[in-house]
Amino acid sequence: METVVDATVPLDQFVLEEAIERVPDVELEFVQSAVHSSACPMPFLWASTNHPDRLETALEDDPSTERVRHLSRDDDRDLYSVDWTAGATGLIDGFSEADGSVLDVRGTADHWLFRILFPDRSMASETFQTWCDAGTDVSLSRVGSLSCRAGDTGGLSATQHTTIAQAFQTDYYDVPRGTTLEELAAEFEVSHQAVSERLRRGHSHLVERMLSESTVGSEGRP
Rank of each mutant, 00 (worst) to 15 (best):
R69W: 03
L113S: 03
P24G: 01
S64C: 11
E97P: 00
L146H: 09
T49E: 02
N50T: 14
W131D: 01
R177G: 10
A109V: 05
N50W: 10
S64M: 10
I116W: 04
S122F: 12
A7I: 09
L28G: 00
T180K: 08
H205T: 05
E97N: 13
M1Y: 13
L211S: 09
V102P: 06
E189T: 08
W131E: 02
F118S: 05
S96T: 06
A158M: 12
T159I: 11
T89A: 12
S212N: 11
V31Y: 10
D104E: 13
R69D: 07
Y172W: 10
E17I: 01
A165M: 08
R22W: 03
G107W: 01
D74T: 13
F114I: 00
F95G: 02
L156Q: 03
D104W: 07
G178P: 05
W131S: 00
R201D: 04
S96C: 07
L117R: 13
S157E: 04
E97S: 12
T170Q: 14
Q193K: 15
V190T: 05
D53G: 13
C148M: 11
S122G: 01
A98F: 01
V23L: 06
E182C: 07
F44L: 14
I164Y: 04
S37T: 12
G217A: 15
D99S: 15
R69F: 06
S38N: 11
V216L: 14
V175G: 01
L117T: 01
E17V: 00
L181P: 03
L91G: 03
S145I: 08
D93M: 15
L16F: 01
M210Q: 13
S145N: 11
C148P: 00
A165I: 10
R201K: 10
T215A: 15
S204G: 12
W46K: 00
R73K: 14
L59E: 05
A7N: 07
E66C: 03
E208R: 09
Y173P: 01
T136C: 08
V82L: 06
V216R: 15
A186I: 07
E2C: 05
L11Y: 04
E208H: 13
S218L: 15
Q166S: 12
Q32N: 14
